[in-house]
Simulated scan of single mutants.
Amino acid sequence: MKGVLLVNLGSPDSPEPKDVKKYLGEFLMDERVIDIPYLLRTLLVKGIILNTRPKKSAKAYKKIWWDEGSPLVVLSKRLLDKVQKLTPTPIALAMRYGNPSIESGLKELHEKGVDEVLLIPLYPQFAMATTETILVLAEEIRKAQFPNMKFRSIPAFYNDEDYVKSLSNSIQRDLNKGHYDYLLFSYHGVPERHIKKSDVTKSHCKIDGSCCNTPSAAHEFCYRHQCYETTKNVAKTLGLEEGKYGTSFQSRLGRDPWLQPYTDATIDGLAQKGIKNLAVVTPAFVSDCLETLEEIGMEAAHSFKENGGENFHTIPCLNDDDQWCEVIAKWINN
């Protein structure tokens, strides 16, 4: 029997510091998130970050927390409920970090008699710290607890025609609500070394502005290339004018070089250049979360206005958009 496991990033169980600390510990100790030797990672995460960051992050989570719980988890459940109505195939939901866990999701499917699982990491673009870590952990759990299960997974869907249409339509609907001088596509950032580690050719990725536009087998696993392709595909679909949109990367951590241009500097720069009406969309996420609701919707909006901007609009993620749900159901039914 076939079944589907939708997997999203995850969230603390509550916005309280103790739950945030537990969540951050699981997240940051992942070797595909902070990819340094275990002892150094332990020293950095448990010795430094977890002694300072949980309280600050808890305050941020409290700003965006809903009565129903974490926005990301609530929206993911709504997505599952809508998609389930469009397909007879049993679907379970899991988070890479926090609850519900991948283990619990696979157990739920196993108890329904499922022995062939389609894994759908809810990330349009491939990255070590997102898609890869989900697939690796799911396989470890399968081998240990469900050895008779078979796995399949969908590849990064950044260039899937149906996905691009649903994303473009959702953006257009929101843009129709107001006048905007500029549309910024802000993607979650990753360290530059992650891009090079994911390069299957071991030589193509230079992160110099040209390699992403030169055809290569490396692009199948190149997050940077896939982000720029997402922007290009949506801009083409919407007929956006050159110079009226751009791409940036947010949420960097530490001192190592991350993908640029940085979103915070880009937004401040646009305001300083005279852009008064700015819309920001976050296509690395399919569900609104801390990075979209607080980092962009609150912090970036405040900074934009501090630097001379006037109207700042955060375009919601796809969340449980009807057309997006139909796209997932189509993948499942096919």
Rank of each mutant, 00 (worst) to 15 (best):
E220R: 12
K197H: 14
S210K: 11
V200P: 09
Y187E: 03
S186E: 02
L238S: 14
Q226C: 10
H204M: 00
H179K: 10
C205D: 09
C227V: 02
R224Y: 15
T201L: 04
L240K: 01
T230V: 03
L184H: 06
Y180M: 03
E192L: 00
C205K: 03
G239N: 00
T237M: 09
C227R: 10
R224G: 08
K196H: 07
P191I: 01
Y182N: 11
P191E: 01
H204N: 04
H219S: 01
E220H: 08
Y182C: 08
C222G: 09
F185T: 02
K197G: 10
S186K: 03
K206R: 12
T201V: 04
P215E: 07
H179S: 10
L175Q: 02
R193E: 10
H204T: 06
T237L: 06
G189P: 14
E192I: 00
F221A: 05
H225M: 13
P191V: 01
Y228K: 08
E241N: 14
N176S: 03
G209I: 14
H188I: 09
C227W: 07
S203G: 13
G178Q: 14
K236F: 10
Y223L: 13
Y187C: 03
L175V: 03
R193S: 12
T201E: 06
F185M: 06
H194G: 14
F185E: 01
C222M: 09
T214S: 15
L175P: 08
G243S: 14
N213M: 11
T214L: 13
T231N: 11
E220L: 07
G239Q: 02
V234I: 11
T230Y: 01
K206N: 09
H204W: 06
S186L: 08
N233C: 06
I207R: 00
N233I: 08
A235D: 04
A218N: 04
C222N: 06
K232Y: 04
G209E: 08
S203N: 13
T237S: 09
C222E: 15
C227M: 05
H225R: 00
C205E: 04
E241A: 09
F221P: 13
K232G: 06
G243T: 09
G243I: 10
N233K: 00
V200W: 05
H225D: 09
S198A: 07
D208T: 04
Y223P: 15
G189I: 02
L183V: 05
G243R: 07
G189W: 02
A218S: 13
S198T: 05
K236P: 07
V234R: 03
F221E: 14
K197V: 15
T201C: 13
Y228T: 01
C212M: 13
K232Q: 01
E192G: 00
R193Q: 15
A218K: 03
H194E: 08
K236H: 09
H194S: 11
V234L: 05
R193D: 11
T237C: 06
E241F: 11
E192R: 00
K196D: 09
H179M: 08
T201S: 15
Y223I: 12
Y182H: 14
T237Y: 11
I195K: 00
